[in-house]
Design a protein around this nucleic acid. Structure first.
Lengths: 253, 253
DNA sequence: CGCAACGTTGAACGACTTCAAAGTGAGTGG
DNA sequence: CCACTCACTTTGAAGTCGTTCAACGTTGCG
């Protein structure tokens, strides 16, 4: 589920995009805008919600990067998702009594809160929008499934390649004119927590990919020198979203 | 999303359970029953749907075990989910142009097909049911997230313990009187494909758990001798489903 | 009964981790 | 402006966990 907007949704309806599947109708966007709370700012490294908290809302990320993570019994951490602007945060935990995931602002961040009752109201007031949300949840399942394959069955090089390609693809959705080079705020330790490696080994694998002329690093910028090779190395097939959505309920006018 | 029934749903409404969250109303069950096709039988080891196929429906598993898997470029396989009776199969792929997952009957299986247009109709005709489906998808995300932690950050013993405990918990939902001992149709190679290990190592870890008196094996039966220790070993916290669902739309009468 | 799939075990290997230490760079206070 | 600090990166060396390869045992099904 992606809801992109530079400004509070109520002020920037034309640019808002609800999902990667299909743009919601203006009437639906108006509903969505009325559901979400005001834009709030969160400072870098601040926790938006901690695992174990009672999940009382989801969040719409307006700007910034947010990490969703779980800390295990032994203290190690798995980062579940790197959230980018337009993402809905915290949705998995609404199925639970206690939130599974901790949400942490990686950069200065702006977001809007959507209460559960507002979300629930969507299912009666805007069935088409609800169906898009449902589809988006299924898409997130596919993303997790692909990561499970990557972490469970491929080498460190493949995993890093898969992560970089996936991240680049998602950045391109937000900024279509992004080239092969992009900046990110992640440390190598965080990248390790994403793809299930130690920071030390992430560093070695970065070097290996650089030596193979597949990528180029400078500070927190990365250039993907050979997208085709990286994508092939990643091992996971590229996914194309469903085109035929004629089975969805009719959008509101 | 779980829809348990021994018989075609239309014949066994009282026992049907739509989700783990809340039972759908009779009117909703009638709608669901009217959407799904007739019960079909699938022989052991038959493919229900192959990755790459166009996703045109989801399936409701009435009886039997089904594996959902992805085969990687190098030929290795990751099993994404072991489906049990009551599960909805194939839902993630409805977000895609081409199915991500292959569905294979592990045992003789009975299932019902639900076409996409039927599924879409649910969002207007039964918003409460649609919301339950949405919640169920979020729950599946949490399950995948927990597995990502398990595979990404824990040892082979922890992974196997986590898998056994999770499987036992799910069997208990279907057969509440199941004890510490249960049967399963999985080979060690398949278990390896679930938790990201080789068959050889799965064998060794089984032996290790047995030596530690945590489990006991006889053929395809497993007894969990010390649930508390296994759960602790698994590293992943037990999840409690949301209790307060007052924010959902009102059920149909 | 015979075959094929599955399970078990040993030994060698390799990928990744762990531990340790030094290098780099951005931010802060004197 | 410089020195200091802290977080992050980089590199080496040793160790461990899981894989790979190979062989043999076991089971169940046609």
């Amino acid at each position: 589920m992606r809801v992109f907007s530079d400004e509070p949704l109520s002020q920037a309806l034309p640019r808002a995009r609800l999902t990667e599947f299909r743009s919601p109708s203006p009437a639906e966007l108006a509903i969505l805008a009325s559901l979400a709370g005001p834009v709030q700012s969160v400072a870098r490294h601040r926790t938006i919600r901690r695992e174990g908290d009672r999940p009382q809302s989801v969040y719409m990320l307006v700007e910034g990067w947010v990490l969703s993570s779980i800390t295990l019994a032994d203290g190690s951490r798995q980062i579940l998702k790197v959230h980018l602007p337009g993402d809905i945060l915290g949705a998995p935990s609404i199925a639970l009594d206690r939130a599974a995931e901790t949400l942490t602002a990686l950069t200065p961040t702006r977001l809007r809160t959507i209460g559960l009752s507002a979300l629930g109201g969507l299912f009666t007031r805007a069935p088409h929008l609800a169906a898009l949300l449902f589809l988006s949840a299924q898409q997130e399942r596919v993303i997790l499934m692909d990561r499970l394959c990557s972490i469970g069955r491929t080498s460190a090089e493949c995993r890093l390649a898969a992560f970089l390609v996936h991240l680049h693809d998602r950045l391109k959705l937000i900024t279509p004119d992004v080239g092969a080079r992009f900046d990110h705020p992640l440390t190598q330790e965080q990248i390790g927590d994403i793809i299930g490696l130690t920071a030390v080994h992430v560093n070695r694998v970065f070097r290996a990919l650089e030596d193979r002329k597949l990528i180029l690093r400078e500070g927190h910028g990365i250039e993907l020198l050979d997208m085709a090779a990286l994508r092939k190395l990643s091992g996971v097939p590229a996914r194309t979203l469903a085109q035929d959505l004629s089975w969805l309920p009719k959008p509101l006018d």
